Simulated assay, not measured.
Amino acid sequence: MSYEELLTQTALADEQVIVMTAENRALVRNLPGILGKRFIDTGITEQTMIGAAAGLALRGRTPIVHALAAFLTMRAFEFVRTDLGIAGLPAKLSGFIPGLLSDANGPTHQAIEDVSIMRGIPNMTVFAPADEDDLVKMLPDVWQSPDPAYIRINTRKTTYNHATFEMGKAEVICTGIDVTILTYGLLFEQALIAVDMLKAEGLSVGLVNMRSLKPVDEEAILTVAASSQLLVTLEDHFVTGGLYTIVAEVLLKHQTTAKVLPMALNEKWFRPALLPDVLQHEGFTGKQIAETILGYQTAHQQPEILKPQFAE
């Protein structure tokens, strides 16, 4: 099932659902003719759309709003914070082309601060599906929640069949002793490739899909921190405020520590290009991820401690 099919099915079953967009119809092209007055296009006015969504939510509606992730989270930030966050209203924000998915767009259209921005708003929940299967499995619960939500929309089709979604829970794909990769969104595809390559090198490798970023699965983070020698946080987001920061916050909160290698965009926007080229240029292909992890392990390998030989 596609995003649009799920949204159509949901809206037809519940007349309180209102679909809104700020002149960004890529995800909802067929809905105007189906929903009629329950489809609202405000034009390129993200702030106005959020204000209107708040008004509808106050009247018992469930507005599901659409815009480019960069503009939804930054241009309309104050409106999201004040109208939705402070009031705790159940508007659902569908951020289109987040992270590296905006591939050919320049810095003004790149949403690589969005997780940090949205999770900092009280009452706001944040989700980042790995692909379309993950997306459609999480959205019914997210849309039914009484909380405002920001979803990093990802409609890429993969062959992976994800587990049932549970709010606030990570999806543990596999466990490993040597290294565990924690990731979300688009880079899950590349993480799967990296895991296979690392296993071929003889490493015991784990992979966790951090699909729910707020609320976050603290237990999953603490478990892999205790059982794996190295954690790798992999994300198409600035290193500040994203998954690396979330992991650090959880470890500090529980007065524990771990060896963590962050793989993220380090204080720079990515170079616009077609997605395969962006992944290659920024070092996020599965092969490059595996090579980075192997290089880190080699550089930080502890020398073998020789046991003293005692005469009998």
Rank of each mutant, 00 (worst) to 15 (best):
M1R: 02
Y3W: 14
L7H: 00
T8D: 01
T10Q: 04
A13N: 12
V17F: 03
V17H: 06
I18S: 10
R25K: 10
L27N: 08
V28S: 08
N30R: 11
N30W: 07
N30G: 15
L31P: 09
I34A: 04
F39M: 10
I40E: 09
T45E: 00
T45H: 08
E46H: 06
G51K: 05
A70F: 04
F71G: 04
T73D: 11
F79S: 06
V80L: 05
T82E: 11
L89G: 09
P90W: 09
I97K: 01
I97S: 09
P98T: 07
A104Y: 12
N105E: 03
A111T: 13
I112M: 12
V115D: 06
S116F: 04
S116Q: 12
G120P: 06
M124S: 05
T125Y: 00
M138L: 15
D141G: 01
V142M: 05
Q144L: 06
A149S: 06
T158S: 14
T159F: 01
F165H: 08
E166M: 02
E166P: 12
E166Q: 12
C174P: 02
C174W: 00
D178N: 15
I181H: 01
I181K: 02
F188E: 10
I193R: 08
L198N: 11
K199D: 14
L207H: 06
L222G: 05
A225M: 06
L230W: 01
L230I: 11
F238C: 10
T245S: 15
I246W: 01
Q255R: 09
L265W: 10
F270G: 05
F270R: 05
L274Q: 10
V278T: 09
Q280L: 08
G283R: 03
T285L: 01
T285P: 01
K287C: 00
Q288D: 14
A290R: 03
A290Y: 06
Q301D: 07
P303L: 02
